[in-house]
Structure formats: C-alpha cells, structure tokens
Design a protein around this nucleic acid. Structure first.
Lengths: 244, 244
DNA sequence: CTCTTGATTTCTGTATACAACTGGTATTCT
DNA sequence: AGAATACCAGTTGTATACAGAAATCAAGAG
C-alpha cells in the first residue's frame, strides 16, 4: 500500500480528506479529531494523518487542544470578517507594489483578455448570465493578480485564502447561484477593470484601495447569508463553522 | 526518553534546534537538511524532527525539495524587503482596526506605560542609552500592539515575523549594538508615540500609515547592513541567508 | 444523592522498522 | 572511448509498536 504514484501521496490524501470532511460540514465545529477514527475513515496510517492535521492547524481550520490533539475550529462572525479584510489588505499590497514597480505588458495583456472573457460571461441580464463561467474566470483572474506579487507575498495570500470562506470564490461557489449574488457581479467586474487600469497607470494607492473595497463584496455576501437567507449557509463551503 | 516534561517536548526541541542551526548561520542557504544527520545532532528521533521541518517549511525558513526532503531557503534582497513591507502592512491593518473599533482604556494605559519605560531607556545621548533595555521594551511594545488585533490577524503577524529578519527586533539584536542603529531609536520612539496617539484618537488611517512607515526603519537598517557595513551580517539573525 | 477517588480505557507523542525512490558509480556492451 | 545499464548506498515516506498522559467510568465514602 505504501509508495503509491506521486511523492507523499498519502499525506496529500490525508490533507484533502480531512479538509473535505471539515468544509463539507460533516465534522462540526468544536468536535475533537480522533486520529484513530480518521485513520480508519480515510484508509491511511497515522503518520501522514498527523502531518495533515499539523498543516490544517497552520491553515487555521483546526486548532490544537492544550491537552493534545486537535479540534475543528469555530469562527465568530467577526473573525470571518477579519479574514476577509485580511485578504483585501494583502491583495491591496500586492496590487500597490505591482503598480509601483511596473508589470510587463505581456502580463497586462493576459489580465485584459481575462476581463474580456468575464464581460462575455456577463453578457445579457441577470437571468441570462453564465454564472458558472464567471465563477471559473473570476478565480483565474484573482490568481493572475496574485501572480503579480513576489513569492513572499503570494505565499501569504494563499495561506489566508486557504480558509475557504476568505477566498475570492467563497460566495461564488457554483452551488450558491442565487440572484442576490449574481446581481453583485456587474459591480465586481467594474472594480476588476479599475484595478487593472490602476496598475497599468502606476496608480499604486488607487489599486490598493480598489482591492480592499473589492474584497468587501465578500463581506456583503457573508452578511446577506447570515442575516437574510441562512438557508444558503450549507451552500457556501465551511460556512457551517461560523457560529452566531 | 519519551514523555519528557511538557507536551510535545521533543517536537519543540526539534523546532528550536533546527531553527537555531539555520538562523545562527551554521547551516548555510541551499544546504539539504538530512534527517538522519539532524537526528543525530539534536539527539531526538525522526518523528518530531519531521514535524519541525514541516513547520519550518510553513514558516518559510526551509523549502521542500521536489524529489523529497527540505533545504535551507535563500532569500534575495527583494524578498527580505517584501517581508518587511508585509509586516508593516499587517501591523498597519491591526492598528487601523484597533483605532476604528476602539481599545479599552486599560490597554491604552499599558501601552502608555511601555512608552514611558522606553523613554527611560533612551534617556541621555546616543552613547549613554540603555540599548539592551530598549531591545526588550521594543519587543514588548510591538507584542502589545499585536494583541490589539483579532486572533485571525495576530496569527498572520506572528507567522510573518517568524522569518527572523522580518521581525521588529531583527536589527535590534543585542549583538548588533552599533551607533547607526542606536541613532535611529529616537525617531522610532517618536513613531511609537504617534501610533498610540492615533489609536487613542480613533484616527485609523493615520495609525495605519504610521505602522507602515515604522516598519520601513527595518528596511533602512537592512540596506545599511547590506550596503554600508556587511560585517554586521553575522550579528543579525538569519541575515546570512540573504544572497546578493 | 453527591462528591471524591481509583482503576480502566483510550488517546496522543515518540521511536523505530520497513519499503520505495533517488542519485551516483562502476561495469559492460557497442 | 562513450554510452547505456545495472547495482548500491543513502534518503525519504509510511506503517506500526510502545509508553505515558488524559478522559471516562464505577465504586465507595460522606
């Protein structure tokens, strides 16, 4: 059973397996993660499982229990808001530095092409748009933005967005295709265009402010789900871990 | 040998041991970290050592080798600068939110008292100051600032500052007691006072800008060491990992 | 009936055995 | 001689055995 194809395949499997159990809501916030139970459930041994738990601890999805082991972490509304604010701040930093230091035309071209593809997906009105297409393109666009930053900063962005509800795609899951979210996409795309323009014009401060404001769309969506339509909680990954 | 006093004592020992070997410069950038060698050197077994290596990989001090294992990471000058900028940005976020949301008077009092203690340490002129005292008080002051932020943000600050040269104390190591650094402390303390005042007056944007500018003192010190007096490289933790 | 205390069970942290893989060297064939 | 291949030492990833510490439960004292 050992030495499957790929390096550290079991560890990867353990990581994805446990993460999936948590974000899918199968393991609720606060529950202790018994190693033996998980080992049996995932069909792996304790060593790669423990590696996965340690990594998830770093990501923040689980927290270490003082007496040993880990438990699924729970998040207050304020903590989720702070995680979103954190992402906006880091994306803002990435865009400001990109604007100040300059970006090769080839990369700007890629971004512009993505913007046009997103326009295509948004063609028509709220009922006709290609929501699923937008979801994919939006994720690709944000990843291209992150790629403008240095490795140091990109690493931090990826770490922060490993909390599922902090990712730019958090409320754009294909399972959360509701009108309230679809309506927000036009404004989001306007911000996308402005961000690319600001980078192109070397307007660092503007690019930074736009990135922050853009992230706050996720906050609006969060508050909509929590205050207006709690039935959506199950459709947004890991939102079941939010208490209050 | 197992079950020393304290939970996960061997893992802690491994973590500190390997980290120390790296920041002390004993293991130079790029060298592969042989598990068996380290095990023998630190007197622990492979399991806690591997946990430590994984954690150091998350911290960014070591990087995973595609074919397996880890190597001591090397940092370009630009990467160090970005890490410092990153810390300033995160501290700025923490201070902005603290200012906007308000801080209990008791905590503001603690900060003010620390400011006064730092003033004490700086009493006299550049030759007379209590440099070692300043080092400790400065670290305490920054930690109190971090404590104003939510757990989500504090976690990220602590992660970023786990890279030794990105910490607010990086160039204030007691072994780096040189006049060029001592001279910068008066301006630093002025910024400290302004930061606390801005929080107290709920001036979020000002607090944020001050925190960013404050971090850039570390950048100045970095450039002084790299460009003016490279003999100091050995006195600043982990700066031997910087190439160029 | 409640609280304390002791034993049992379960769990985590650590050590070590095992197997697959990587990189290098020597050997052999062309 | 050069290249390809087989072999070999060394290394990492995985599984599992073991020991100490919590948590749980039961029984007994107050």
């Amino acid at each position: 059973m050992s030495g499957m194809s790929g390096r550290a395949a079991q560890s990867q499997r353990a990581l994805m397996g446990v993460r999936d159990l948590i974000v899918s809501g199968e393991l609720r916030a606060g529950t202790r993660l018994s190693e033996l139970t998980l080992v049996e459930r995932l069909g792996i041994s304790r060593t790669p499982l423990r590696a996965a738990l340690a990594q998830l601890g770093q990501e923040g999805l689980v927290e270490a229990i003082p007496s040993g082991g880990y438990a699924v972490r729970s998040f207050s509304r304020d903590e989720v808001i702070d995680a979103i604010e954190l992402r906006g701040t880091l994306e803002g930093l990435a865009l400001r530095l990109a604007a100040e230091r300059g970006v090769p035309p080839a990369r700007m071209g890629e971004l512009t092409r993505l913007l046009e593809s997103i326009d295509e997906a948004l063609k028509g009105d709220v009922a006709d748009m290609d929501f699923d297409g937008y979801v994919d393109l939006n994720a690709a666009f944000h990843e291209k933005l992150w790629a403008l930053a240095s490795q140091t900063i990109r690493r931090e962005i990826e770490r922060v967005t490993s909390l599922p509800f902090a990712s730019p795609s958090a409320f754009l899951d294909k399972q959360a295709n509701v009108e309230a979210f679809r309506r927000s996409l036009y404004g989001a795309q306007t911000q996308h265009r402005a961000m690319v323009e600001a980078i192109s014009l070397r307007e660092g401060s503007r690019a930074e402010a736009l990135a922050r404001e853009h992230a706050r769309l996720a906050r609006q969506n969060l508050e909509f789900v929590l205050d207006q339509d709690r039935s959506l909680i199950r459709r947004v990954p890991a939102l079941s871990l939010v208490v209050g």
